[in-house]
Simulated scan of single mutants.
Amino acid sequence: MVINTELCALSEYRIYPGNGKLMIRRDGKPIWLGSSKAFSLTVQRKKAAKLVWTQAWRRLHKKGLSETTTKKRSRRAGKVQRAVVGASLEDIKKKTAQKSELRTAARESALKELKDRKVANKAKTGSKVAKKATQSQTFQKVPKHMGGKGKRGGTQR
Results as ranks from 00 to 15, higher is better:
G150Y: 03
L22E: 15
K94V: 07
Q137S: 13
M1K: 09
E67L: 13
R45Q: 13
R73G: 01
A56F: 02
R45Y: 02
T104A: 12
R58D: 01
K63M: 14
K122Q: 11
L65F: 13
R76C: 07
L89K: 08
Q135A: 15
K131C: 06
E101N: 07
A83S: 14
K72I: 04
V119P: 02
T70V: 13
G148R: 03
K94I: 08
K63T: 05
V85L: 14
S35N: 08
A48V: 02
R152N: 15
G28L: 04
H145A: 13
Q98F: 04
N121C: 14
A49M: 09
G154S: 07
K144T: 02
Q55W: 07
R26W: 08
E12F: 11
R58A: 10
R157H: 09
H61N: 11
L114W: 14
G28P: 03
G126P: 05
K118C: 03
A110P: 03
T68M: 14
A130D: 07
H61D: 05
K99P: 06
T42N: 01
W57S: 06
K99D: 12
K141F: 06
W57P: 03
V80K: 11
E90S: 12
D27F: 05
G34I: 06
S74W: 11
R75A: 12
K79C: 14
T54H: 06
L60W: 02
P17T: 05
E101W: 10
I15N: 06
K50W: 11
A56M: 10
A56C: 11
K128L: 10
S66V: 12
L41V: 08
Q98W: 08
W32V: 04
R73K: 14
A106W: 03
K122A: 13
K94G: 07
L10F: 09
R58V: 00
R14A: 09
I15C: 04
